[in-house]
Computed example of a mutant assay.
Amino acid sequence: MKEKIHIKNIRELSVTRGESNDMRKKINCITIDHADVYNQFSSAVYFDAIISILVLSGKADIYINYKSYPISNNTLLILSSAHLFHFYECSKDFKCICLFVSRDFINEMDSTDMIYQRIKYGVRLYNTPIMFLNENNKNIALKRINAINEAIDNTGHFYYKEVILNNLFAFYLDLSNIIEHNSPASRGEGNPTRYESIIKSFIELLAANYREEHKVDFYASQLNLSAHYLTLIVKRVTGQSVSDFIFEMLYSESRTLLTHSKLSIQEISSVLNFSDQSSFGKFFKRKAGISPADFRKKR
């Protein structure tokens, strides 16, 4: 009989670090030991989240997309919603700290550069979701995750969500730095795979053109690919489509302009190459749940 595959979200996690609050339904940090592994993560599961798992002690074996990986102290795993995983062996002294970030919360990060970084490393982390850290990098990652967890508990902070987002942003920047220093290119090893080359080219095109070009066909034609094939690659690597990323960049930039610029809503719609202010308003309301004017008033 084929094993049942579960799809879970952050709300289904048992909180074992910090205080339970509504924010932990969107972003959560938990510590998992030997018993927790078998109680929560012993059957195949997809999580609708980006998961960072830092092993603190002991050893375990984990299946990720039907491939077995041994993990131990100082191992860092980065899993997307496209990774099917479960633990199947675990030592009694096994312990890890896990950061779960929902896609909705990731989308609240205002920086388009953060989206750029996430796509940039997505293909590498999808194919090789495990990194072995030296003691210094382990301590950096652990410090950042602990800071996020403390920020989630600090519900009385006047800028509560902003503090969490800033700590999360710092964690991902440090993660990007670790990945960059451990990439084959930085060590003078090998050449990028075809997927890595395509994703790299797509990122560069997206960063340069997302304000003016909103259609998948443009990016596919520039890469001499079909729109279907480009979408397939990006979807397989990140769990999102090319259109998702184009709209995510536009939404992030529109929030930045509404918050930090003096441009009128009409001018913003023009800068972002919408056909008119009404089209921009409909796009923004679908993403934010409120109009651009109401969003600006709340800031």
Rank of each mutant, 00 (worst) to 15 (best):
M109E: 14
M109C: 15
D110S: 10
T112W: 11
D113Q: 15
M114V: 14
M114G: 08
M114Q: 15
I115S: 09
Y116M: 09
Y116C: 08
I119Q: 06
I119G: 02
T128F: 13
I130A: 14
E135G: 07
E135C: 07
N137I: 01
K138N: 14
N139I: 01
A141Y: 03
L142M: 15
L142S: 11
R144F: 04
R144E: 10
R144Q: 07
I145P: 00
I145E: 09
N146S: 04
A147D: 11
A147W: 03
I148F: 05
A151V: 04
I152W: 08
I152S: 05
D153W: 09
D153P: 03
D153T: 06
D153K: 07
T155C: 04
T155P: 02
G156E: 07
H157D: 12
F158E: 11
Y159C: 11
Y160L: 05
K161E: 15
K161Q: 15
K161M: 10
E162K: 12
E162C: 00
V163S: 11
I164V: 12
I164E: 07
I164P: 03
L165H: 12
N166L: 11
N166S: 14
N167E: 14
N167I: 07
N167W: 10
L168N: 05
L168M: 14
F169T: 14
A170M: 11
A170R: 14
Y172T: 02
S176K: 02
S176I: 05
S176W: 02
N177R: 12
N177V: 06
N177T: 13
I179G: 00
E180V: 06
E180S: 08
N182P: 05
N182S: 13
P184C: 07
A185W: 11
S186G: 03
N191V: 13
P192V: 04
R194Y: 09
Y195V: 02
E196C: 06
E196A: 12
S197M: 12
I198Q: 06
I198F: 01
I199M: 08
K200R: 08
K200P: 00
F202H: 01
I203M: 07
L205S: 02
A207C: 07
A208F: 07
N209F: 05
N209Q: 13
N209C: 05
E212W: 06
E213F: 09
E213N: 12
E213V: 06
E213T: 00
H214S: 13
H214G: 04
H214Q: 12
K215V: 04
A220G: 01
A220W: 01
A220C: 03
S221V: 01
Q222H: 05
L223C: 01
S226G: 08
S226H: 00
S226K: 02
T231P: 02
L232V: 09
